[in-house]
């Protein structure tokens, strides 16, 4: 590979990291919050797909894409609240409910989304941060959607709040030891209900990014499992919001490798390169999960670790 080609691939990975990572970021942050409170919501794929549909529909009908983002968040909030409420009932398994909510979310999104496949809705604008470079590929890679920055700010805020606020402490305590939380007079069910609802809200916003910015249209194959991958990223990021951001960026960048290598003439083995994000994730998981620190990071109340 010559130098020019290498630069092209690196620019594409930078662009891919910025363009593709945002939905992963929002879903992973939402799931991080939910899991920190001691509950797993596998249904965020449903929130993502429903959010994408609702955002597109509302943007198309109202002409205001930001209203679409808000509506997508609200639809995710409702799904998250449903998950939170059902899991509060006795003897309910949160993983099973999550899978049911995933089918439910995608199902209603497909059902109500029919009329919005054809029309073109107003989309979110991006901020051109790379025009000064004078390089069109770099300028394109640095077209950044505001939601990307919102996601990063949110991760910083969450990280700070978990460590430094009473609310953060309550969420972590609920997730690590329900008995201690109860002894402190905290309603475990209420905390988990609120955390799951808020997590659902974030995942819905991730969906809005998919349909209103990149790739920027609504159809039934839009998500292709990104919500599920993002849930896995939380484990990969070991329940740390900042690491969720890095994981999402890495995943986006690795996803750009396949097309970028083909565009510079490295054309064979594209199935392998397209699998790069998953292979990378696997290796980092193996490397990181062996440490004792990884076991310490898991919220103690998660039904998979209990």
């Amino acid at each position: 590979m010559n130098e020019g080609a290498l630069v092209t691939v690196l620019i594409a990975m930078l662009g891919g990291a910025i363009r593709v990572s945002t939905p992963f970021m929002f879903v992973a942050l939402g799931e991080c919050l939910t899991e920190k409170s001691g509950r797993i919501n596998l249904g965020l794929e449903g929130n993502l797909v429903l959010g994408a549909m609702v955002a597109y529909g509302v943007s198309y009908l109202s002409g205001n894409p930001w209203l679409g983002v808000l509506a997508a968040g609200s639809s995710g909030l409702i799904l998250g609240a449903m998950h939170g409420y059902i899991c509060k009932l006795p003897k309910v398994n949160d993983i099973a409910v999550g899978i049911a909510m995933m089918s439910f979310g995608t199902g209603i999104a497909f059902f109500f989304g029919k009329p919005y496949i054809q029309p073109t809705a107003p989309r979110l604008d991006s901020i051109p941060l790379g025009d000064w470079t004078g390089n069109s590929a770099l300028a394109q890679a640095l077209q950044v959607n505001p939601l990307f920055f919102v996601g990063i700010a949110l991760a910083l805020a969450m990280s700070w709040a978990f460590a430094n606020t009473k609310w953060g402490l309550i969420v972590r305590m609920t997730g690590d030891s329900a008995a201690s939380a109860r002894a402190m007079g905290v309603s475990v069910d209420l905390v988990r209900f609120l955390a799951t609802s808020a997590g659902g809200f974030l995942a819905g916003i991730g969906g809005a990014f998919l349909s209103l910015y990149y790739p920027g249209s609504w159809n039934e194959g839009l998500s292709s499992g990104q919500g599920l991958m993002a849930v896995a990223l939380v484990i990969f990021a070991r329940w740390d919001p900042i690491r969720c951001i890095w994981a999402a960026l890495l995943f986006g960048a690795a996803g750009a490798i396949g097309p970028a290598l083909q565009s510079v003439g490295i054309t064979s083995g594209y199935y392998f390169f397209n699998a790069a994000p998953y292979i990378l994730t696997l290796f980092i998981m193996i490397a990181s999960a062996r440490s004792k620190a990884a076991a310490r990071d898991v919220p103690g109340e998660l039904s998979i670790t209990k």
Binding site: L222, S224, G255
Partner: peptide
């Protein structure tokens, strides 16, 4: 030509177009 490897993968199709 860029092959995406699947019949319907909107995000990778957009990435391929950009590339």
């Amino acid at each position: 030509v860029i092959f995406t490897g699947e019949w319907s993968l909107p995000v990778r199709e957009a990435e391929a177009t950009n590339a």
